[in-house]
Design a protein around this nucleic acid. Structure first.
Lengths: 259, 259
DNA sequence: CGGAATGTGATTGAATTCAGTCGTTATATG
DNA sequence: CATATAACGACTGAATTCAATCACATTCCG
């Protein structure tokens, strides 16, 4: 059996069972423990599954949007680390505005169960909080982008404009000397509205975004209060960010004690 | 804190997070590991949770919203029959506005893949269309009711007021001589806005709703253009509906060739 | 044919988690 | 007030799981 075929079967197994232990998978796939572990590592980096002590969880909610697929190895672990630090910036009782990036989604997962008020443009994020009695959920409406499940367009902008939140948290596709960038015009417009609605703006991004530019300029460096990145950020950039008056939070990519 | 209260909180946490590790729960509940273990043992015996090496899984079928638990098998078949006939009222290219009732949800399932423009206040309905390339989706934002996953409140009303749709389709909790009723004030307000935004109003309801009243009066009989019910509707009611100028569609409950 | 690259299976020591036990505290009851 | 019961937190040894490493097989090129 080909390796890729086995991985597909593995993912399929995990998807239908929602959770699978390692011995289970070994029995089913008839391969060694090592191989299963390696495959799971793959699936996790790709963002399809979530490994926990004792087995694997399926990452996506069942028949949903194409769950974020990440090619770059390690990117997912970085996102998780960043999300953990960003979650620490959120205080109980806060009203926060979240967009629909993959890092933001990870952050949202960590915030489920916290007593906070959540405003979001993202359908996947909304699904996380919909059944959570601890938090309030306000969904920003608008045209839903089929690829990402995020509300965009004038309707979204108008609704955001009528709101006021403590913190806005979103991710970007590029950061350079000119400021922050994203790769979708509609998205940038929505994010501008999100910034205007917030007391504080928090940007989450992994270090590969530094120095990269993208299609649309969102805002200058100094218009953001917090930036959370992984520890791959070069010293030069740390200084540049600090010089712009942005509070920098560096997330250690090491430990990952799921919490 | 009382033990039973803590267990409720524990179960709630596990439910919304789908999975929780032991350290997580210890941190959240502020009790010792032993106590958390004992509580989990309880929950497992009770069948609410499933313990695995490294944490707990929620045992319930629905990680998300209480996904329209089929109340009575019979009622569900009726809903499906009604939904089938209602789907026939929708033409390709239409812009339709859907609420979050269970019958409406069934209708929405039938409409996935059709080239239509969908506007909805319902998170579950939105999830159906989010990944559908054939249809456009506009999500109405607002406060999300945790029980039903439906957007309500002034934000929802304001957004609906800025829209114009061909048909509005929603369900009601009661129909009598005074008109249509629903059991939630916020819901009724939203539905009034939905009616104002539409050229035509379609109400879907099973025949058990006839003659029943509910908490809040929504509108008179003559303010609705179409009513779709199952074939349990009495002759007297058929005449009454027709007299009010409502186009009546009776859905045969017989065949059920899976749709 | 040689050799690099990749995938696989086995092993090992470290880390984590588990189940059971024990002493303490709080509450209820006689 | 004394005692019994239940719940809690801490500890311990056993079991499980994890990450890392090594050796072997296969494939793909040069």
């Amino acid at each position: 059996m080909l390796a890729s075929e086995r991985r597909n079967r593995l993912l399929e197994l995990v998807r239908v069972k929602r959770f699978a232990s390692l011995p289970e998978l070994i029995e089913e796939l008839q391969v060694s423990e090592s191989t299963v572990r390696r495959d799971l590592e793959h699936l996790e980096q790709q963002g399809s599954a979530r490994r926990i002590h004792g087995g694997v969880l399926y990452a996506g909610t069942s028949p949903k949007l194409p769950h974020f697929d990440e090619q770059e190895p390690g990117a997912w672990a970085k996102k998780r680390a960043i999300a953990r630090r960003a979650a620490a910036l959120v205080e109980d009782g806060d009203t926060i505005l979240l967009d629909g990036g993959s890092t933001t989604y990870e952050l949202a997962r960590l915030l489920v169960g916290r007593p906070i008020h959540v405003v979001t443009t993202s359908l996947p994020v909304a699904n996380l909080f919909a059944a959570d009695p601890a938090s309030d959920l306000i969904l920003v409406g608008g045209n839903i982008c089929p690829r990402s499940g995020v509300a965009q367009g004038p309707l979204a902008g108008a609704m955001i404009a009528s709101l006021r939140v403590r913190k806005t948290i979103f991710s970007v596709a590029g950061i350079n000397d000119e400021g922050f960038f994203n790769n979708n015009l509609l998205l940038v417009e929505t994010e501008r509205a999100m910034m205007r609605a917030a007391d504080e703006v928090v940007v989450v991004a992994d270090s590969s975004k530094l120095g990269r530019r993208s299609l649309t300029h969102l805002c200058g460096l100094d218009e953001v209060q917090h930036l959370v990145v992984d520890d791959g950020i070069p010293q030069a950039w740390q200084e540049k960010i600090a010089a712009a008056g942005v509070a920098l939070v560096v997330a250690p990519s090491a430990n990952d004690p799921e919490a």
